[in-house]
């Protein structure tokens, strides 16, 4: 079976049932592709066995970059390029450089981390997500299991999903086109008939 195309989707109503379901399925040896939730569910990432987010590390290094750049900028401008006596103080008056240094540290740390987040998660204007179930941004938790990556058969996994109180479960197959969503196609499709691969009918 081709990978990344044939999925079994389980819908959960409650995040505690979801987490216990994830734990149980993984204990049974089922490989879960991803879970989509309408809000951040705490401890779900632990249940799925994800490694801790490294965003703080990105923030730290961008922040340090900001600190260094700010100190260099102020020292070179006021101390080297055009020294000026201001209020009888030294050319390079470090205590006076603290506020600007702090602000640039925060600025670079925030934006560096923010863009790291957007880029690593593939978020950007024009990105079109591949949808398993639209209710995932509304009120349901959606678990996707890639059938090609699992040794268990579809029926076995379906039975397991039912045993962990999944509200419903169904098979979802993606075409190549759906697997490679294209913004321009999305735009043209929406403009011409209002329907795209990932949306419901216009009323």
């Amino acid at each position: 079976m081709e990978s990344n195309k044939h999925f079994l989707v389980g819908i959960f109503n409650d995040h505690d049932i979801l987490i216990s379901g994830v734990k149980k399925l993984r204990a049974e040896g089922v490989k879960i592709f991803e879970v989509y939730t309408p809000y951040p569910v705490h401890h779900l990432e632990h249940a799925l066995g994800y490694k801790r987010s490294k965003m703080p590390v990105a923030a730290f290094f961008f922040g340090i970059t900001g600190t260094i750049l700010a100190i260099l900028m102020q020292t070179l401008m006021l101390g080297v390029d055009w020294p000026m006596i201001i209020g009888g103080k030294p050319y390079i008056a470090y205590p006076d450089f603290v506020p600007v240094t702090f602000e640039l540290t925060v600025l670079l740390a925030s934006y560096g981390m923010g863009f790291t987040f957007f880029i690593t998660r593939g978020l950007g204007p024009g990105a079109v997500p591949r949808m398993f179930d639209r209710r995932a941004t509304d009120d349901k938790h959606v678990m996707a299991i890639d059938l090609s990556e699992n040794k268990k058969s579809e029926d076995e996994i379906k039975a397991l999903l039912e045993s962990v109180s999944a509200e419903e479960s169904y098979r979802k197959d993606f075409t190549d086109e759906e697997n490679n969503p294209n913004f321009w196609k999305f735009l043209v499709d929406t403009m011409t008939n209002g329907v795209t691969s990932s949306s419901r009918q216009l009323n």
């Binding site: 991803e34 879970v35 989509y36 939730t37 309408p38 809000y39 951040p40 569910v41 779900l44 990432e45 799925l48 994800y50 987010s53 965003m55 703080p56 923030a59 740390a109 925030s110 981390m113 923010g114 987040f117 957007f118 690593t120 998660r121 593939g122 978020l123 950007g124 204007p125 024009g126 990105a127 079109v128 997500p129 591949r130 949808m131 995932a136 941004t137």
Partner: peptide
């Protein structure tokens, strides 16, 4: 919406980013 899909991995990073911000 930048193509946000609510995956658990994105939420995990999102939470981390929110806390640091």
């Amino acid at each position: 919406s930048l193509g946000f899909d609510g995956s658990a991995k994105t939420w995990m990073h999102y939470e981390s980013v929110s806390l640091i911000l």
